[in-house]
Amino acid sequence: MDEKNSQLTNAPKRLSLWRLIGTLLGIALTIYLLFSYGLDEFLRMLKSVPLGVFLLALVFTFLSRFMVTLRWLALLRAAGVRMTLRRALRLVFMGLFASNFLPTTVGGDAVRLIGVLQHEMKASTGVASLLMDRVVGSIGMATLLPWGIPMIWPTIERFFMTWWALPVMVRTWSNVVDRSRRFVKGVIETIGIWLKRPYGIVLALLATYGHMVFTFLAAWVLLGSMQQTISFFQVGTLWSLAYFVTLIPISINGLGIQEFSLTFLFTHFGGVEPKAALVLATLMRLLYMLASLPGALFLSEITANLGMRPRG
């Protein structure tokens, strides 16, 4: 494995101090919201969600994970990797479990990369497939931004006009630009594989939309059970905004940041009651964790072969 791929594989094992601080800050903000809205009110709203609705949302979450698997498998197949659906499902769920329960030691992408290397795939192809998987996922979510950004633009303008926001935004923007530059460079270097077989990208994008629909359905039925009037399209638009907030690498797996951003966006721009928005964010995190549990059954397949030397 070359130096670049080695760095990619080892990167998830390093826990940045700033990311740890960001995680703790996000959790602290979420706890602050919890007590600001009232713990009793939060629990009352939580209990108003019927078990049947929660289980339905869990089914939607599993289906969304199935679509994520199809997205990655479409990219692998287009790159000439003949992986079975069963094997892809096991690797995706192993990665999800690692992301949700082992975020400080190993990332989900690292687990999937190790798995595909064991599948006799070249390291460069494995890294490229994971990178394209993220790219296609982001493109799918970005299609809703033309409706989402105008909703929050007045708030963004007010934020820019505050005196304390400028140094924060300069530092954040600098980091975003630097990471974006490296990200785009990586995309350009690897996208050639799929430009020769564009059907892979088309199928992956269709699977992404399937993943989005099932994720939005899970959130929508939960909000409906709490008597919150919000359209399915609004749910998707606000969710896409929260998605891009959690992509900012300031928290471990978006912990705390996702909950706070979902609560803020659905409350201020979706007309959802604050306590209902917080319940939604909490339950969606729980659904993600429950949906990743099957990965624990297969994780030993990876850990038993960590010492192997990959090809490429």
Rank of each mutant, 00 (worst) to 15 (best):
L34D: 11
F232D: 07
L102V: 00
L306N: 03
V213I: 15
R112M: 14
H211M: 12
V202C: 04
V279N: 06
V136G: 08
R44W: 10
T172M: 13
V59D: 05
A142H: 04
L73S: 04
A28Q: 02
P294L: 07
W72Q: 04
F97G: 00
W194M: 06
L85V: 11
P150L: 09
A242Y: 02
V177Q: 07
S138P: 06
V184H: 08
F244C: 02
P198Q: 10
D178C: 09
L222T: 02
R14G: 00
L222Q: 03
L287T: 07
S16M: 06
L55Q: 10
L287I: 07
R65A: 06
A79C: 14
A88L: 06
G108S: 00
G236T: 11
Y37V: 09
Y243V: 13
A123Q: 07
E301M: 01
F264W: 15
M169E: 01
V245K: 04
V168A: 15
V235K: 08
F35Y: 11
S64C: 02
L293E: 12
A281D: 13
E3H: 05
F42L: 08
G236W: 12
T246I: 15
G271D: 12
A281V: 09
F159Q: 03
Y209W: 15
K185V: 11
I149F: 12
T61F: 04
V92M: 13
S180N: 12
T143Y: 10
R65F: 11
G140K: 11
T155E: 09
F54V: 03
R182W: 04
G271C: 11
R134Q: 12
A88G: 06
I252R: 00
R82S: 14
R71F: 05
G186I: 01
L131T: 11
I257M: 06
P274M: 08
V272S: 06
G52P: 06
R86N: 09
M67N: 03
L144H: 08
R71G: 06
A11F: 08
L15S: 06
L290E: 01
L76T: 10
L89R: 00
L265P: 01
S292Q: 08
N305L: 09
P249C: 02
A78E: 10
L131P: 00
P50D: 11
P50K: 12
G295R: 03
T69K: 04
A98S: 13
G22A: 08
R19K: 13
M83C: 07
F269Y: 07
L306P: 02
Y32R: 14
L130C: 01
E41Y: 12
L247F: 13
E301K: 02
G80S: 07
M132L: 14
E3Q: 08
L39A: 15
A78F: 11
G137W: 13
G192Y: 03
D40F: 13
Y32W: 15
W194K: 06
Y199S: 07
F93T: 09
V177T: 08
R171L: 13
V92A: 13
A281M: 11
R86C: 00
